[in-house]
Amino acid sequence: MIVVRQKPIDDILEMVARHKRVLILGCNTCSAVALAGGEKEVETLAELLRLATSRKGASIEFEGAVLQRQCEPEFIEELEEGGFDAFLSLGCGAGVALLSEKEDIPVYPGIDTLFIGASKGLANWQAECSACGECVLGETAGICPVTRCPKGIMNGPCGGVSDGQCELGDRDCAWVQIHERLEELGQDECITETHEPRDHSTKTLVREWDMSEPGERK
């Protein structure tokens, strides 16, 4: 799923400062699961903004609502007119974008979209995929070097590895893990195979995916 994080409250306050009536809009798919855009976070943020703005003497009304998914036009159409002059979206970038396209008032992002991640337990996610459009996980034992290695190295660990740790010091070295896992899986041939430079064009060129035409690759 897409992992997101709420923006600092000062940034949010600045964005909505010139508005009078703002709808905080949650997204009950990825953002909710990321504990940043469900009904609870919407209501908490609404209270926080009410409190913060009233202390500043500003009079901005904040209301809240949650859509099942903000990246679907039909869900957005479900929104009723509420006399708002801005949206504060707690959806990922896709939600903010579609909302902006469909609504005729400004939409502000209340969260930052971080990565495509997997859950590692309570309130803890790890980036696992960079949506590069060229998946190599079959050759890297399911550990994405593009995502997990800060340099996106495709051919093995750099000299910065220390005790299996990345030189950035905050994570395991992806390549050490890939090696261990490949050995466990008996995929030794993947260890010696040199990977060609990646094709970054997919990420640049494939910006719309229309499967409605027959014969398209699925």
Binding site: A32, G38, A123
Partner: peptide, 12 residues
Amino acid sequence: EKCAACLTGMRV
């Protein structure tokens, strides 16, 4: 109808 299947409750 409100559940986002986040599994937070299960983990807690």
